[in-house]
Amino acid sequence: QEPLTASILASAPCEEQKQMLGERLFPLIQAIHPELAGKIISTVLEIDNSELLHMLQSPESLHSKVDEVVAVLQDHKAKEVVQTAG
């Protein structure tokens, strides 16, 4: 599979660009966090496409962002549990 570049991405319709990035990010993130991959990707897709492209090319950047998002998701879940418990 050829690398996803900014020019390839730019040639796609706006609504498909996030989809393309998500498809490429999925196996990478699934390898790090299999259980949370879907939620992590839905969260990181809110980031600028240029940064997402950088994450595809830089494992360090990808791991850093994944750690950040996992912390946010776990914090969100913890708050929901507290609210649900009253």
Binding site: E15, K18, Q19, G22, E23, F26, A37, G38, K39, I41, S42, T43, L45, E46, L73, H76, K77, E80, V81, T84
Partner: peptide, 26 residues
Amino acid sequence: SNGSSINWPPEFHPGVPWKGLQNIDP
């Protein structure tokens, strides 16, 4: 629905069109 947003955010699945978080209420 049980009225809880504990399952938010929605999950991205390969092959399923992604419409973004803004289009989905928590």
